[in-house]
Every structure is written in structure tokens, then in C-alpha cells.
Design a protein around this nucleic acid. Structure first.
Length: 302
DNA sequence: GTGGCAATAT
DNA sequence: CATATTGCCA
């Protein structure tokens, strides 16, 4: 049984404050509804062929998630990266009920949550479903986690597998580059390598010795102040001093389209540089082609 | 049904 | 290229 687990688990859960306090990630994936709210078809200048929605769904249910930030008060962090609906392929038009989720972009912060969850659950209980639930990131699906988990495990394995032999050259330190250089696995890890991986993760079963669970809260939440929904002219600012690790798509084109909040029209003049906070980070997610990308944004926590 | 993994697709 | 998706299996 998982009595022992329940022990800390329950405790941990017990520690969980109310849903309000919960939600380390200030927000999660942008829900279609939310996106819609932002999108409010104002921008037609974007080459976005609106897909014909067969029917007008009466959005009876919203995200159905209690924590779903019904109000986007704290969401946006300027460019930090927000959730982005890319090109707006579908965002531009009415949300067809069967909205398909945009590609989830695993940002380091999001991955951190993932790792935290796994670390706290223990390899033992770290299964997609549990992880997903613990992350409480609405919008995250089991498949999302499962897929990522797969890669994550490979990464850990690789890490453990090697460790001896620095290949003579790399100074005994295992740098991600070195790892991949070993060619242990073709699938390299970018995100993983950048994330702080808890020291343990290698022994699934521990007779009965429980693993010490440092109560590292799954992240320290960071409260943002209610920011107006980025009105026109209200440039985004506020870039957390956080560094961004991006690997990303190649911004081959000099055209960046901010995936997140594109406040309708740039009210010409008000603020010349409407949004486009810092393309440097966003560019990575730049869907060269207008692919919709859903990304969580960094919670300034690390 | 859920989870893990390889292959494959986008 | 990073994810998602699928197939197959435990």
C-alpha cells in the first residue's frame, strides 16, 4: 500500500493552501476562452485565414478548472513569455468547441514544475497521471506529461549511465554538450540539461526507508500585480531578471509575432513599440509559419 | 485503462 | 527541431 506514501503525501497535500494560493505558475496554459478574450478578433491584418467554425458553441463551460484564472489579472508578464497562441490560426475565429490544444511549449519553468512534481512523487509514483495532477497546470494532458516524461527519463538514464570518464577532455564535468558528445543517445536534451535535477532519481524502490522529502514547495509562487489587460499603449515591461534558456525554433525571419497577448491594434502612435517586449526571448517560440504555440509562461521562480 | 517506449508524424 | 501521435505491449 502506499500508506507510507500517503503519509507525506497527505501531509504535503495538506499543506497545500487553498486553490487560490495554489497555482505556483501564476497561470497556466491559456485556455481557448481566455485566448478568445484576448483575441477578440481585432486583428485582421495578420495573415490568418479564419477557419470556418461550423457552429457557434455556447460556451457553457469555461475551463472548468477552479484555478483557471478566470480573470487574467496576474497573468501576463510581459514578455517573459507568455502563453502564446501562435499565429492565431484558430484563435482568430470563433472557438469551435473542439478546439485542439496548441502545441505545448515546455519552458524551463514549466519543466521545473514537472521535475518538482516528479521529485516529490518519487520515481515510484511519478507517472503521467499523478504528475499531471500534481502540477495542476490546467491544460496539461496526460499525453503531454507522458511524452515529456519519456524524454526526461532518457535524460536521467544518460546522466547516470555515464559519469565515469570524462572523455578525457572535458574536465571531469559532465556538461550537456559532453553528454551528447558521448553519443549515448541521439536524442539530446536541451531543456533537461538546463533544469536543476534533484540529486536523487535513481532508485525507485527503497525498502522501506522513505525518502526524505524536503518540503520544497513545488515552487515558490510569485504574485504578480494585476496588470491591466495590456491595453494598447500599455507596453509590457517587467522582465524578470531571469535568463531565458531557449532553444527554439530558428527565428530565421526577422518577423516576430508575439505569441502572447497581442493587444489588438497598435493604436498607432500611442506607443510606437506596442508590444514586442523583447523579441529575444520570444523569437524562439516564433512559429515561423504561424503554427499555434501554447506556452506557459515563466514564473520567475527557479 | 494506464503506463512505458520505439517509431513516426507534424 | 521540439512535441505530439501512434502502435504495441506490460
Amino acid at each position: 500500500m502506499r500508506e507510507e506514501d500517503s503519509n507525506w503525501f497527505a501531509k504535503w497535500e495538506d499543506e497545500l493552501p487553498s486553490p487560490e494560493e495554489l497555482m505556483p505558475l501564476s497561470q497556466s496554459l491559456i485556455t481557448p476562452d481566455l485566448a478568445l478574450a484576448f483575441d477578440i478578433r481585432n486583428h485582421h491584418y495578420q495573415s490568418t485565414p479564419p477557419p470556418p467554425p461550423p457552429q457557434l458553441p455556447q460556451s457553457t463551460d469555461l475551463s472548468s478548472q477552479p484555478n483557471s484564472s478566470a480573470e487574467f489579472d496576474s497573468t501576463e508578464l510581459g514578455g517573459g513569455g507568455g502563453v502564446g497562441l501562435g499565429g492565431g490560426g484558430l484563435g482568430s475565429d470563433e472557438p469551435a468547441r473542439t478546439l485542439k490544444r496548441p502545441r505545448l511549449v515546455w519552458t524551463p519553468q514549466l519543466h521545473k514544475r514537472f521535475v518538482d512534481a516528479v521529485a516529490h512523487l518519487g520515481i515510484k509514483n511519478a507517472v503521467p497521471k499523478t504528475i499531471m495532477q500534481l502540477m495542476s497546470v490546467d491544460g496539461l494532458t496526460r499525453e503531454n506529461v507522458a511524452s515529456h516524461l519519456q524524454k526526461y527519463r532518457l535524460y536521467l538514464k544518460r546522466m547516470q549511465g555515464m559519469s565515469n570518464n570524462g572523455s578525457g577532455g572535458v574536465g571531469g564535468n559532465n556538461s550537456p554538450a559532453a553528454l551528447s558528445a558521448l553519443g549515448v543517445d541521439p536524442v539530446t536534451d536541451h531543456l533537461f540539461a538546463s533544469s536543476p535535477v534533484p540529486a536523487h532519481f535513481l532508485h525507485p524502490s527503497r525498502t522501506n526507508s522513505d525518502h526524505f522529502m524536503p518540503f520544497v514547495p513545488v515552487v515558490s509562487l510569485q504574485h504578480h500585480h494585476p496588470m491591466p489587460v495590456v491595453g494598447p499603449g500599455q507596453g509590457l515591461h517587467h522582465l524578470p531578471q531571469q535568463q531565458f534558456r531557449h532553444y527554439g525554433t530558428s527565428p530565421s525571419n526577422g518577423q516576430f509575432e508575439h505569441p502572447f497577448i497581442r493587444q489588438s491594434h497598435p493604436v498607432h502612435g500611442s506607443n510606437g513599440s506596442v508590444i514586442s517586449p523583447h523579441v529575444e526571448n520570444l523569437d524562439t517560440a516564433t512559429p515561423t509559419n504561424g503554427r499555434k504555440v501554447l506556452t506557459l509562461f515563466p514564473t520567475g521562480d527557479d
